[in-house]
Write a protein that binds this DNA or RNA. Structure first.
Lengths: 157, 157
DNA sequence: GTATATGCAAAGCATTTGCATTAAA
DNA sequence: TTTAATGCAAATGCTTTGCATATAC
């Protein structure tokens, strides 16, 4: 499976309109986690007449097709992640809501049988919270505690 | 620290109105992950005149005080988790959106230095996805694949 | 040519806010 | 008595929908 969304879409039986192409083109790259509104803005740079409704429709279709991941790890509107090929987790900055993909570092902890209560587990998502370099700097400078209240410190190798 | 929300709130300097008490009383128990609307409905059984705005205000205050956790792991509106004392993760049913708390089973995987890209990691959240016993049964019965598309199977001990 | 995608504008939730009234301390 | 919380209703933000028109195949 190619890691390129456009290439995969061409091999699918999916009507490729100018609008859908514009949306797909915007969703290329690493650490891309755009909101629907951001996708709309960027797509309009390529195709000024594309409507908000079409962007929402297209994003929902791509998600249903498994070509796009919905991520809801930060405040505000949902974000869309085109990285469906490599298993990865998310690192979210509590200061500026920036998101980075990080490769899955190892097997996630396994839940004991009794704690599962009969649930069948089919997948695991891991979200790391923290501060990006810029926000960490500002944080140290101002002594501001926003974004870390209640968080445990995690040992970093 | 007591595990009881009401008890903790009494020791805090927080005006305890009938409305706030009703909200806090609703938020007692294990595996409680109510939406704001559900909190409103249940609180109204105790105090019929409580308004939606007050429920939202109160929930936001409790979250800001660290007495309540906002969880956004399922479709639809945010849910509120009163279990702030024990570190735990969430097990979410893809069929009916039910949520169970599960104790943290072990240390989460550690992100390699280079993958962190200068981020300071301060916390980790783990969400297990799957099917609750009832939905798993229905799923086997109907051959329905809803809720598991794209998920990897995780070995269960 | 026909099925399907688009754009528009309106509707739909979830949530927040401004402000006059009410109640806690 | 003073300060802060409540309720209402209106506003906001994000997302979906109905339907007539345009377009890919």
């Amino acid at each position: 499976m190619t890691s390129d969304l456009l290439t995969r879409l061409r091999t699918r039986d999916w009507r490729l309109s100018a609008q859908r192409r514009a949306v797909a083109q915007v969703l290329v790259g690493e650490h891309v986690h755009l909101t629907a509104e951001q996708v709309h803005d960027l797509a309009r740079e390529r195709l000024p007449e594309i409507s908000r409704a079409t962007v929402y429709n297209t994003l929902n279709e791509l998600v249903a097709m498994g070509e796009l991941l919905e991520v809801d790890v930060a405040d505000g509107p949902k974000r869309y992640d085109p990285n469906v090929v490599e298993r990865h987790d998310h690192l979210v900055c509590e200061g500026c809501q920036a998101i980075r993909d990080v490769p899955r570092a190892g097997p996630p902890p396994e839940i004991a049988e009794r704690a599962r209560g009969g649930f069948l587990v089919t997948g695991v998502e891991i979200t790391y919270r923290g501060l990006c370099p810029a926000c960490a700097r500002r944080h140290r400078a101002t002594g501001d505690r926003r974004g870390t209240a209640g968080d445990e410190m995690v040992t970093v190798p």
